[in-house]
Simulated scan of single mutants.
Amino acid sequence: MSKVEIFDPAMCCPTGVCGPSVDPELTRVASAVFTLEKKGFNIKRYQLTTDPAKFVENSEVNKVLHEKGPEGLPVILLNNQLVKVAGYPSNEELAQWFDLTPEELNEKPKARLPINLKKQ
């Protein structure tokens, strides 16, 4: 099974999907990661602000940071191999890595709300 690790730049929150103006690319990535996690796939995101040790411990990521600085982020590893620098994977790339169709990553999560119809 594939393992994907996303090393994000410093952001205001774990997904970067917050604040007054939300970057659509971060929304897409957050949604794809959420879908993959719910399907049981091995995908992890690390943020420079909250997980600095992960950036230091990984020699590939550390090398990118030394050569390119924070402009080299995000860094994407597939099975511990560097596959992308300074950009997020497309849904097509993620689908290929996890043997899915891109459409499976475009599915919107279904909210499940409990409804109690009994009178109190």
Rank of each mutant, 00 (worst) to 15 (best):
N58S: 11
V85N: 04
G40W: 01
S31P: 00
E5I: 05
P52V: 06
T101L: 13
N106F: 11
V4R: 01
V17I: 09
A30I: 09
C12S: 11
S90H: 05
T49R: 09
Q96K: 15
C18D: 04
L117W: 07
Q81I: 05
T27R: 07
L77W: 04
M1P: 08
K3C: 06
C13W: 07
L105S: 02
S59G: 03
L78W: 05
V85T: 15
P109G: 12
V17M: 03
K63F: 06
P9K: 01
L26V: 09
E92F: 04
Q81W: 02
L26S: 08
V4Q: 02
P52G: 08
G69C: 10
Q96A: 15
H66V: 12
T35H: 01
V56N: 05
V75M: 03
V4L: 07
K110H: 10
M11H: 01
P20F: 09
V64R: 03
S2Y: 04
V64L: 02
V17P: 02
F7C: 02
K54S: 14
Q120R: 09
W97M: 05
L77V: 13
P52Y: 09
N79S: 14
L36V: 01
K63P: 01
E92Y: 04
P20I: 09
K118E: 15
G69F: 08
K54I: 06
L100T: 12
M1N: 05
V75R: 01
D51L: 04
K44Q: 14
L82D: 10
S59P: 03
L94S: 07
N106I: 00
V64Y: 02
D23G: 09
V22D: 00
C13G: 04
V17L: 05
E37M: 04
I76F: 00
K119T: 12
R45M: 13
T15I: 08
A111W: 12
K54G: 05
I115Q: 13
K84T: 03
V64P: 03
K54Q: 15
H66K: 15
G69T: 09
E5G: 05
C12E: 14
L65Y: 07
F7D: 03
T49S: 14
L94G: 08
K39F: 08
D99I: 03
P74V: 03
K54M: 15
N80D: 15
G87Y: 03
K3A: 13
V17Y: 02
P109C: 12
E104P: 03
F55S: 07
N58K: 08
E57L: 12
T101Y: 02
K44P: 00
V75C: 05
E5K: 15
A111E: 14
K63Q: 15
E37D: 06
L100W: 12
N106T: 08
P70G: 00
L117C: 09
K38C: 07
R45C: 13
A53S: 13
Y46H: 10
S2F: 04
R28N: 12
Y46C: 05
V83G: 02
L26F: 14
V61T: 05
G19L: 11
V64E: 02
N62C: 10
F7P: 02
V75T: 06
I6P: 06
P52E: 07
G16C: 09
S21Y: 11
V75Y: 01
G19R: 12
V61I: 06
T35W: 00
T35A: 13
S2L: 06
A53C: 00
G69V: 08
E92T: 14
E37L: 10
K44F: 10
K68H: 12
E71P: 00
V64H: 03
V29E: 01
